[in-house]
Structure formats: structure tokens, C-alpha cells
């Protein structure tokens, strides 16, 4: 029977690598299409509508007699504030809701069996999932960013042109005034500083995605993951009461038990205010480079922390 066949036909053992970029990429790319198929693109359409409403449907500025009454800068500020705010909320919700469904869906459909029975370490699976989410967030943010930039640019040039024409008509246009007008609109309009705020929005979103993935490794329902994620988003964005309670009152106490709780909470509840520079950018304050680096570093630390925790929970999970 079985010894009829020589085992020479058996393929030699393939080398196995603990970390494989190919596998990671396959998992991430697949996760990307998976979230894309959850109709997440509707988010972008809603975003575009908001942009159009605030960019064009808003009433034109009243023609005043002097520069300060023009209100052009106000309009740019409003547009920026609204679009960055919308970007921030959309990517945050996309990060939480999109990630929350990934694991439960694979478990329910039992597609997870077919993946984990391949030589795929569980850590890599989680990393691949997160990678796919990050990819999707980056791309949707890029689209939103480009749309914002285009609208801002158009708005800014038309406002500047309008004002220059105004002074021209009054015969009071001097080269200094032209420079002044252009500088002003540049400061409140499109500039690199705007991208600092977008970076903050991105970092906030990926931290939330990692957190949502962590919750989904032990949560019993997707709804719970989403609700918990949203709660953490609201707390993290600085509902003053909650934050003050945790970070000032609890951390400040001398009782060790409370102190430990506070430290744990501080680690588990990301302080999302660190990524929020929207107000500063809208006000026209330039964000220094060191601050951006710090922000990025903090986000990476959170990401690593959440991934390791997720792996801890997931590696022991019975499927």
C-alpha cells in the first residue's frame, strides 16, 4: 500500500521566514479592498458635498470700503476650519468603523481559518489588517486633501483678484498693496501649514484604527467595538471633564491604586489633542517641524503599544 510510492516525489522543505513583506502586502492589499467594499466611499461623497456647500454656496463677501471689512480671510478661515473638521471626523469614523468589522467578519465567515492555516503568523495577520486600514485612510485623506486644496486655491485666487480689482477701480492700487493682499490670502489660504493639520488628522485616524483593532480582538460584537471606539474618540478629543478627571484628578492623587488606574487609562485612552492642530492652522500659526515629528513619534508609540496588546489577546484566541 503506502510503501509502494517512494518519497522522492515529495517536495523539499521550503524555507520559512518569520516576517515576510510579500505576505504583509498581500494581507494589507486585501484588507484595503475589503474596506473599500464596505461602501466607505460614500464618506468621500458626503465630504465633497460639504466642501461644495461651504466653498461656493456660502454668500459672497460684502464689498466694503477698506481692506479690513472685506472678510475674505474670514471666509477662508471658515472654509479651512470646516473642511479640516470634516476631514478629522470622517477619517476618525472611517478608521473606527472600518477596522471594527475586519476581524469579526473574518471570524464569522470562517475565512480566518483559511488564512491562519497557511504559514501566516498571527501577528502578521493583525499587522496586515492594520496596514490595509492605514493604506485606505491615507488614500481617502489624500483625495480629501486634494479636493480641499483645489477648492481653497480657487477660492483664494478669486477673493484676491476681487479685492485687487476693487482697489484698482478706486485707483488706489499700489504695488505694496498688491503684495499685502497676496500675502494675507496666502497666510489664510493654501499653504504647507495646512498639510500639518492634515498630518495630525491622519495620525489621529491611524491611532484610532489600531485601538479599534485591539478592541475587536476581545469584543463580542462589532457594535460594541464601534461604540467603544467612538467613546474613546470623544474622550480623546478632549471632553474636558473626562480628561481632567483622568489626567489631573486621578494622576494627581497619592493613592497608588488610583494612580495605577490613571496610568493605565492614560495609556489606553489616547490623548488625541496631541494630534489636533486644526485651530492653530486656521488661526494662521505656523506649526514648527519639531512639533510634527513629536506628533508622529507619539502616534507610532501608540500604534506599537496597541498592536502588541492586540497580538497578546489574539494569539490565545480560540477560533
Amino acid at each position: 500500500m503506502s510503501d509502494r510510492m517512494p518519497s522522492a516525489a515529495i517536495a523539499p522543505l521550503r524555507p520559512f521566514s518569520r516576517v515576510s513583506p510579500l505576505r504583509l502586502w498581500a494581507l494589507a492589499a486585501h484588507t484595503f479592498t475589503q474596506i473599500l467594499r464596505m461602501k466607505t466611499l460614500y464618506f468621500l461623497i458626503v465630504f465633497a458635498l460639504i466642501l461644495i456647500v461651504f466653498g461656493y454656496v456660502m454668500p459672497p463677501p460684502p464689498a466694503g470700503s477698506d481692506l479690513s471689512s472685506f472678510g475674505g480671510e474670514q471666509e477662508l478661515r471658515l472654509l479651512k476650519s470646516v473642511s479640516l473638521g470634516a476631514m478629522s471626523w470622517f477619517t476618525a469614523i472611517l478608521a473606527i468603523a472600518g477596522t471594527a468589522m475586519l476581524l469579526p467578519r473574518d471570524v464569522d465567515d470562517r475565512t480566518l481559518y483559511t488564512i491562519l492555516c497557511k504559514p501566516v503568523p498571527r501577528f502578521e495577520y493583525l499587522l496586515g489588517k492594520l496596514g490595509g486600514v492605514i493604506l485606505l485612510l491615507a488614500l481617502s485623506l489624500l483625495v480629501m486633501d486634494l479636493a480641499c486644496c483645489a477648492v481653497l486655491h480657487l477660492k483664494q485666487s478669486s477673493l484676491a483678484a476681487q479685492e485687487i480689482r476693487f482697489w484698482e477701480n478706486r485707483g488706489e492700487l499700489t504695488p505694496e498693496r498688491t503684495t499685502q493682499i497676496n500675502d494675507l490670502y496666502h497666510r489664510y489660504g493654501l499653504n504647507w501649514n495646512f498639510q500639518s493639520a492634515v498630518l495630525g488628522v491622519f495620525l489621529q485616524a491611524i491611532v484610532l484604527a489600531a485601538l479599534s483593532l485591539l478592541i475587536s480582538t476581545f469584543a463580542t460584537s462589532t457594535l460594541f467595538t464601534i461604540m467603544a471606539g467612538l467613546a474613546l474618540l470623544i474622550i480623546g478629543q478632549g471632553q474636558e471633564l473626562a480628561r481632567d478627571y483622568i489626567f489631573k484628578d486621578l494622576l494627581g492623587t497619592t493613592a497608588t491604586a488610583q494612580h495605577i488606574i490613571a496610568v493605565t487609562l492614560a495609556l489606553l485612552l489616547p490623548d488625541l489633542r496631541q494630534f489636533n492642530v486644526i485651530d492653530e492652522v486656521v488661526a494662521g500659526t505656523t506649526i514648527p517641524a519639531w512639533f510634527l515629528w513629536r506628533m508622529t513619534g507619539i502616534a507610532i508609540l501608540y500604534l506599537a503599544f496597541y498592536q502588541i496588546l492586540s497580538w497578546f489577546v489574539f494569539s490565545d484566541k480560540e477560533l
Partner: peptide, 30 residues
């Protein structure tokens, strides 16, 4: 690395085609 598994009532990603499915699992195997 040495084993292939067909689970009972297998269920794969519905949105992938047959070839894409095989490509996905093939990549997972290197």
C-alpha cells in the same frame, strides 16, 4: 508550511474571483 487545509463548508471572500482567490492564498504561502 507543509500542509494544505480545506475546512468544512469552506467560505472565501465573495468579492474575489477564482483566480484572485488563488493568488491571495498563494502569496500568503510566499
Amino acid at each position: 508550511n507543509d500542509v494544505g487545509f480545506l475546512p468544512e463548508n469552506p467560505y472565501f471572500y465573495k468579492h474575489l474571483t477564482g483566480a484572485e482567490t488563488l493568488a491571495f492564498y498563494g502569496k500568503l504561502c510566499g
